[in-house]
């Protein structure tokens, strides 16, 4: 029999998983991507004075977002909060991630792991409620401060932007720990021993061995924490109230209180664009840092 097959490539019949992908892909497209595209179109619609959506296309909503300090300012505020939260999370996550990746005590590891995960698996409302109680006038912080004689009357901690900041750090810290410990765990113990053997102190080993090798994990942690904190709204709302200039809160207010959905949509896409841009820059910086070190 003559060769009847033609074609330039041999097909591997081992093409795995592409059939399995069909249903979940359809789900994500229908339940997530299409609504998101609908939202994008909505952000381009004009509205009348009663906030009714009209047909046609306009960039007016975006002009409004960039032209109103009430809206654009909230994006800047969110950016500033997200930067502080990301840096704080990285610093706080390091000891936990290091412990999870390096400790030889399995009991200790299990304990730290459960403690790390517990906020992640606890509803945001429960955690926010907890911070409300912690920082309330008769809560543990004020009671402790008064008992120590540091303050005479209880501080209005709930209205402090620092309380919101702490609560957001608390919400996102587990993500940073998990991302970091994955890359710290991948560092070969022998490298650390080699560094110590070559006479490097702990600090030097950390700077010249651990930090460079952990760069991918640091970038991943920063990107996750940053993007999640950019849109956060439940925690700030419940801890600090509705009168804060944060983009997530403004989106929620515009949509659910002012019923101006197109404007809320436009603001959310501006927020998403800024978030993606910063994450892209962080990723690029991480890659450059790695390449620079290799060169």
């Amino acid at each position: 029999m003559a060769a009847t097959r033609t074609g330039s490539r041999s097909r591997s019949r081992d093409l795995r998983g592409h059939v399995a992908a069909i249903v979940p892909t359809a789900f994500v497209v229908v339940a997530f991507l299409l609504p998101l595209i609908g939202l994008l179109l909505l952000s381009l619609r004009p509205t009348d004075t009663m906030n009714n959506v009209l047909p046609g296309f306009t960039g007016a909503q975006y002009a409004e977002v960039f032209g109103t300090s009430y809206l654009w300012g909230s994006v800047v505020e969110s950016l500033w909060l997200a930067v502080r939260v990301s840096l704080t999370c990285l610093v706080l996550a390091f000891p936990l991630a290091w412990y999870l990746a390096r400790s030889t005590s399995s009991v200790g590891k299990s304990l730290v792991f459960v403690i790390t995960l517990s906020p992640l698996l606890t509803s945001e409302v429960v955690r926010s409620f907890g911070w409300r109680v912690v920082m309330s006038g008769e809560g543990p912080v004020n009671v402790t401060l008064q008992a120590l004689g540091l303050v005479d009357e209880s501080l209005p901690l709930l209205r402090s932007p620092w309380t919101v900041f702490l609560a957001v750090v608390h919400v996102l810290l587990p993500f940073a720990v998990l991302a970091l410990s994955a890359s710290l765990g991948a560092i070969d113990n022998r490298l650390l021993q080699a560094s110590a053997d070559l006479g490097a102190g702990a600090l030097r080993t950390f700077r010249s061995v651990v930090l460079p090798l952990a760069t991918p994990g640091i970038v991943a942690a920063a990107v996750i924490v940053f993007s999640l904190s950019m849109g956060v709204y439940v925690t700030p709302l419940l801890v600090g109230g509705a009168n804060q200039s944060l983009a997530g809160l403004r989106i929620q207010t515009e949509a659910m209180v002012a019923f101006d959905q197109p404007r809320a949509a436009a603001l959310s896409f501006v927020l998403l664009a800024v978030t993606l841009a910063v994450c892209g820059l962080v990723g690029l910086a991480g890659r450059l840092a790695e390449r620079g070190r290799r060169a």
């Binding site: 997530f32 609504p35 989106i251 978030t275």
Partner: peptide, 11 residues
């Protein structure tokens, strides 16, 4: 952001 997912689904 969750608020955006919520808004998109709501619409």
């Amino acid at each position: 952001p969750g608020v955006m997912v919520g808004l998109a689904l709501l619409y």
